[in-house]
Design a protein around this nucleic acid. Structure first.
Lengths: 117, 117
DNA sequence: TAATTATATACGTATAACCATATATATGGT
DNA sequence: ACCATATATATGGTTATACGTATATAATTA
């Protein structure tokens, strides 16, 4: 997918998806429970949006045990990757993005940070 | 408007609006008849999308006689302006953007290029 | 004032997007 | 096999978006 530029922007046009994307852009790989905790949104809601992002090719997934880890697709076209970074730089100091990162980094029992990566 | 980043991306998430925006980003100020001609889309369709872009603050308008000239809002936040340029650079060599510009520049009787700017 | 050109809006409809809740699957451990 | 945890999907309802067509407004000119 992602032949069409407007498809890429559709993925950024929902606040839940944008928060997830910028969290990944800032922090790298994250799993569903981390998104759910950081954004304080239900697991099905997060999961559905991540599935959406994955289907459109913006992110990729990796399973590790029961955890699914998601990250920005490094094979995205250069301009798309650049836009993600520009957006992060532009809005990372504003809400809700500040809180999202803060809550994430203060989360304990994060899967990635334990044994099982 | 445009407090919210996802609102900005919503504006880019429709192919008609994206084509109009990139045409403005590339060519500067344009009027409705030029969009309608270049994209080969009906006047009401173009006009409605431009109104949408204007309401969200992404573009601004200037009247000159019967013509309405639209252009990218120069007071957009820096990151938003940067994204428009990055997008243009990234996709301007692909369809439908190539054709749009080609048809625009080969259009005769363009208002801006005559007396009445 | 009437006609013409350029643009904007209104109306009805179709489709798509999002949501909350409930349930299903998948993995690992006992 | 059973249970617990992590994640995914399905269902039904609500709202938002986009569309084509018709019509309205706004400015210009005769």
């Amino acid at each position: 997918m992602l032949n069409e530029a407007d498809t890429f922007f559709k993925m950024l046009a929902d606040s839940t998806r944008l928060r997830c994307l910028l969290l990944m852009q800032a922090e790298g790989e994250l799993c569903v429970c981390e998104f759910s905790h950081a954004l304080n949104l239900s697991q099905p809601k997060i999961s559905r949006h991540l599935a959406h992002l994955r289907q459109s090719g913006v992110i990729i997934a990796r399973r590790s045990g029961t955890w699914m880890h998601y990250r920005i697709n490094p094979e995205l076209q250069g301009w798309a990757l650049e836009i993600l970074q520009t957006t992060l730089d532009g809005v990372s100091h504003t809400e809700p993005f500040v809180s999202d990162r803060k809550i994430l980094t203060s989360m304990n029992k994060r899967p990635e940070l334990e044994c099982c990566a």
